[in-house]
Structure formats: C-alpha cells, structure tokens
Amino acid sequence: MILATTTSTQDSGLLDVLVPMFEEQSAYEVKPIAVGSGAALELGERGEADIVLAHSPAAEERFMAAGFGTRREVVMFNDFVIVGPEDDPAGIATVPSAADAFRAIAKTQAPFVSRGDDSGTHALERSLWETAGVDPAGSWYQESGTGMGDTLGIANERRAYTVSDRGTFLAQRDRLDLRVLSEGDRALLNVYHAITVNPDNGRRVNVDGGTAFLAFLLSPEAQGAIAEFGVDRFGEPLFTPCAGNVCAVDSATPTASPAASPAP
C-alpha cells in the first residue's frame, strides 16, 4: 500500500507514529513516499499511489474534479505562519492580514524566500500573493526549490521572510533567528486532506489498502494520536485532528461556520 504524502508529515515525525499503528491493526504494509503535495497528487493521478495525504486544497479540488480521486476527507489542520528576521524590516508584525503583510514585503522589497517546488506551502504562498495583488519578481524574491527545513535555513542565513507550516517552524526554531511575525489569519489555515485514488488511474491501485488507511486516519485512535503528537516535544500539539470536518476548516464544505480557533 503506497501512501504519497507531503514532506511535513514525515519531517515532523507524525508518520512514524501513525504508520506503525496502522500496520499493527491491519494486514497492510505501508510504503510512505514523502514528496511535495504537487508531486504526491501526481503520483495518485498516475496510479502510482493508493492514497494521498496532501495540504494543497485548490490542487486537490482540481484532482477530484478530474475524477482522479474517489473520496476526499479532512484529516487534520494546523496553520501557516509568516516568519522573518526579528527586526522586521518590512514592518509586517503590525498589519492586520497576511495579504497586507505580503504587500508590505513587496513594497519594501525585503528579501523573501519561496519554496518554489509546487508543494502545498508553495501553493498557499502563491495564493497569498494573488490576494495581495502582487506579482512577486525581482532580486528580493528568491526560490529555494527545497523542502521547508532547508528553506527556513536559507531564510535564516539571508535574513529573509518566508512562509512555513507551524509544525516545521516549531521543530526548528531553536536553531533559527527567525520569529513568527504574522499569524492567525484564516487565509493561513493549513488543512490536510486524505484522498483515496481512483482505481481507473492505473492497473494496480490497491483500493482496499487505500480505503483501510483512510478509515484508519479518521478513526478515534488515529485522531487521538494526532491530537497528542508533539505535546511532549514542544509543549503544544503540531496538528489538530478534524475528522468529519467537525472543526469546520474545510472551505469546500458549505456548512462551514467560522472556526472557533483556527490556530492550534
């Protein structure tokens, strides 16, 4: 059973908890392949994975609309944060929204490091530029083409701004001089969905395995493990479980009401 997933679930260590739990209670052997959300969806589209765990809602909706997935469920969420050097040269800590923060960065041409890798984080970043009405270009806007951990390192060395999921930033903040400067905007919600792959995508899609893993992710045991994950290391959980969209973070669901507290 092949699970194509985003790097943040592996880099945070969450998979090391969930995968053994699932393997213990089922007959399936999981092969988790950690790539960016874009690449994970591509593997699903080619029928090279049985289930996709991603955090790139617009790309996922396109994936579903094209019929590449059979079921798409909210699993959990956390949030993105805009981080930057402590002295905050663009003054983004005082502006109200994430889009305003991006406008301030573009206006002052303060260095910004983009993932540039079609990951979920990169997709979120591009949508924020769009909301801000800015087409980021110029020497201040740099693409790292690497994962979140490396990108945070580059931003740190260059005293630049970047967008990170909160989990990866928390895991690495001890070695970074970067600070969280903008957070809490609903546009910064980071929602993880699991999608079972349509068997028509390829000859060998393991439908039963994918379906079993989806059921597991939504089960009380897995949701409980997600809620506890990271508490021992960071004093706060890295993800908030949300099976059945009970926390109403899924924008695609019309019944969504304002989330009580999007930030974990």
């Binding site: 994962g147 690495q172 070695r175």
Partner: peptide, 23 residues
Amino acid sequence: GNIVGETRVLTTATVLEVGRGNY
C-alpha cells in the same frame, strides 16, 4: 523512497535528518 526499516540507507537518512533540522 527512504522507507524506514525497508529502504532507508545512510545517505537518505542523512537527507531526512537535515530536512528535520537534526544536524
């Protein structure tokens, strides 16, 4: 695929730990 216990070797494990910031 750098799968723990199956295909994780020293070089891929190193890349993973760098990504995790565990220098």
